[in-house]
């Protein structure tokens, strides 16, 4: 998973599908759990991008809608942006597209708690997220 861009409050992350991400032997469909992880990561990053500070956050909930199946043929892009930010909560929306496609394969909506317990991050957006 890599960060492609952070543009104001909108972030874009890219994931190149691997063979172990497949949903069923003999199929090309990617497991929805992988899309879920991608959306969770991009949404979390969008909180930092909007808030412009790296205080710890926690996912309160994440809802995903899977419109159609994603296949291993193309990279996946997750575009996430904050819809509303308060001191305590961030509401994020995220779309997942196959690279080069205008129609999303899935969309997610997440709520994050801000300033949760935990060590504050130093200087950069150095939080590595992998799944």
């Amino acid at each position: 998973m890599q960060v492609v861009s952070v543009n104001g409050g909108e972030v874009c992350m890219r994931l190149m599908p691997q063979s172990w991400m497949i949903a069923d032997d003999g199929a090309k469909e990617i497991c929805t759990g992988v899309l879920y992880s991608l959306a969770d990561s991009a949404s979390g990053l969008a909180v930092f991008a909007e808030a412009r500070e790296l205080t710890p956050i926690a996912t309160l909930d994440l809802r995903m809608d899977y419109f159609r199946s994603a296949t291993t043929e193309r990279a996946l892009l997750a575009v996430a942006a904050c819809r509303y930010l308060t001191d305590e909560i961030a509401f994020i929306h995220c779309n997942i597209f196959p690279e080069g496609d205008k129609q999303p394969v899935a969309a997610g909506s997440a709520t994050f708690m801000r300033n949760t317990r935990g060590q504050r991050f130093q200087t950069t957006l150095g939080q590595k997220r992998e799944a």
Binding site: T32, Y36, S37, L38, A39, S41, T59, M64, A131
Partner: peptide, 9 residues
């Protein structure tokens, strides 16, 4: 744990 992994589970 990563929240996405719990989602996948």
């Amino acid at each position: 744990l990563h929240g996405g992994v719990l989602g996948a589970l």
